[in-house]
Nucleic acid binder design. Structure first.
Lengths: 201, 201, 201, 201
DNA sequence: AATGAATGAGCGTTCATTCAT
DNA sequence: AATGAATGAACGCTCATTCAT
């Protein structure tokens, strides 16, 4: 048992280190230019160790995607979960939402996920699953808000998809040239979108 | 002289063909997985010819970016140039704008430009130049519209940047899962944004 | 003492299992493509256990060769040991001999031994020892037969070598294309060879 | 044209060198242990050049097999083609046949072909084709001989297959331990086989 | 202008072997 | 006795780039 545990702990440690390293390397170099050697070395191991944990580069990428996308959803959800009155708290929510994307070098890795999903069907499939799960999350947040409580899910989902698209667009612009991407304006747009949606009902 | 000319013509022809081929191959495979061999073959030449025109893969990529981004701006500008009365024609304009992006497999190559610009400073610099030039173009289109004629350029530029961000966001979503990206809604958002901007003045 | 015994028994068990597994894997994949992992897994153990029993892949191969070649000799000897009257029983003997080679996927592993012995001096040495021991075995069988009782050993050994060569040749042909290797004809050739040898004396 | 020619000549030269080198390396080390690096270096080139000529290691092996097996058939055929009177000249023919196999390090490469054909279906297929073509060759030689002129092809083919099996068996024994493989005896066996076949008609 | 032979560095992956547990 | 984490050398293969023709 004890042995088991020590092995397990070591295993988990090296796995964690490799995941962390791969996040960094993929973000820095992109999927293709990131080599297994780079990743293993960054994690403090050699190539061989990598293949103890992942059967291929693609598998690692998939696992990293899954891990990161899921973790982001969770973080976002926490941010939004205590949003109760509308305007002001939503403003705060969206601001936080946007703030989070700037942490952790999220942009390069996120767009790396996106771009690779456009060409690799396996990655695409996983991307779609996560994207929908985000939409569901945002939908459920909206549903907590008074004005939307009565809305149909389909409508709210469309609204959620729109919000995510806008934030992604802002996000991309911010990555290209932070000096032109104005966080306040994008928040205004989203608030406005919500208001007009309310009144449209 | 004549010979010179024939050579020049041939040279331009092979250059054009290589550019076209590289567009196709980069869109299909992405920067890293596209090989010079692939591109040359697609153009009907061999590797050697490639290096007669481009000193490296990166140079080609830069030239292609320049060429495509410029050409897109031109196409968009044409679309918008005869927009004179507001709402309806703008709707048509934005729709066309969006439609254009779906042609020519533009999405994968565009995001390829974006993602690479996040990592390569030379590419980034060029991307920023083009992005600003797009903003200027959209700004100038807006300026033609009655309600915005009196606006300050700085304000209009912010508006233009916002519009482009939103369209990019829509575009990305469309690339991830076309079934959730609703073109009409995104157009509505932009129209609304314009209206509210007008009334905000 | 008892503990010792238990350990020994376990040790012998795992050794046996590893040998059996290696026979199967080497036959299936050949020496180079068979991995220690494959073999250990097939035996129901892990790599570590393998190195408790064998110091290297080559040592295993050598032990397996020794084991298999010896075991084959024993089996053959049993088959031939009760051959007493000549023609008919010899026919049966040779047929059985050939039949045995088809069992247990013997061909691929046997030729694996042969081919490796052509390149590795250690393996070659062991192969020669066994080959000679086969010749001796066949010689002793021949010596039991009336017509050969008076023959000199050197002569009988030559005959034995010839018989083994012919069977190996048949065996190889059978492995390449079973549809052209005719067991009866090869038996006839051997019978004939024996008759002519007899009359040659 | 001239250019073409020079390129072609260079190409053929490097191809030839690579084939020769691969013959040597495969014979020395066997298929799996022979590395592309080894082969290319032996030929005086680098790995890259190898892949200009062969798309994979397997393709090279297949081409080498085809080339060698065909060339051997041709050599054998030349040896036998002027065999007209029986016994003595056949003796000479078989002797030459056997002699040829000792040249060029044929044994290790031939058994390498055989052993690999037992596990790789593509190689197996090609091996069978060549083997049958050998049988046909030997059959046609036999048919030139007076006693066999009237025989049916099917019968002669069986005889040919038998002869080849016996020679291969001798060949294998010779490779394992030359000191026990007696060339004269194997020739006697074949001659005898032919005589008994004749009288069997 | 165009070809294509040649290079060399690099990559994803495998695997025999070691050793702490 | 058995495990399994870790290594490091190798291997098959790809590809951007160079250069003689």
């Amino acid at each position: 048992m004890e042995k088991r545990n020590k092995h397990q702990i070591k295993r988990e440690l090296s796995f964690e280190k490799l995941m962390e390293a791969s996040l960094k390397i993929f973000a820095e170099k992109g999927y293709d230019k990131a080599s297994i050697d780079d990743i293993a070395k960054e994690a403090g191991y050699t190539k061989g160790t990598f293949y103890l944990h992942f059967s291929s580069k693609e598998e690692l990428f998939l696992k990293l995607m899954d891990n990161r996308l899921e973790s982001f959803k969770r973080q976002y959800f926490e941010v939004f979960s205590y949003v109760e009155d509308i305007e002001e708290s939503l403003r705060r929510g969206v601001a936080l939402f946007i703030e989070l994307t700037k942490k952790d070098n999220w942009a390069p890795i996120y767009f790396e996920f996106c771009v690779n999903s456009m060409r690799n069907p396996v990655i695409k499939k996983q991307m779609i699953v996560h994207y929908h799960s985000w939409i569901d999350m945002v939908t459920s947040v909206l549903k907590q808000l008074d004005p939307f409580k009565e809305c149909e899910d389909t409508q709210l989902k469309e609204l959620a998809a729109l919000i995510i698209a806008i934030i992604d667009g802002y996000h991309l612009q911010y990555s290209i040239d932070p000096s032109i991407a104005d966080q306040n304006r994008i928040i205004q747009v989203i608030i406005q979108l919500l208001s007009s949606f309310k009144s449209g009902i």
